[in-house]
Amino acid sequence: MKKEPNLSFGRGDWIAVVLVLVLAAAVLVLCLPRQGEENAVVQVWKEGELIYELPLHSDRELQIGGKYQNTVVIQNGRVYVRESTCPGGDCVHTKGISRSGQSIVCLPNRLELRITGTGEVDFAVG
């Protein structure tokens, strides 16, 4: 690839743009949140393990420990992270979630909040 490249934006580059857009749309459709579940459940995963499973429609506040501290709030059918001691604080900046299939992630603390549709646990909880 040592040949001299074309250094300005050309017509061919739109192919790259369209490729990325198509891929984005495909993944978006794949991950489309299913809505309208009454008995949605909030799952709290820490380091790959399910540590809490709570109804989405009853208000609750949780303190998650570990390497960092996260304050998780479930309020009016919405879940969000109010405070976090992790660097970056992406989990706090992420908008709250309210639909099945959505999640909030705190990578530094390896925490994930997930909303799932049914109240049934379809796998073993350790």
């Binding site: 857009l21 749309a25 993944v27 991950c31 959505q102 999640s103 992630v105 990578l107």
Partner: peptide, 23 residues
Amino acid sequence: AAMLLMQSPYILAYLPYLLLVSL
């Protein structure tokens, strides 16, 4: 890498937005 580390397929939902930003 995040899906692997968190062992969660749900993280894929962030990809469309990241792809838009990558443009």
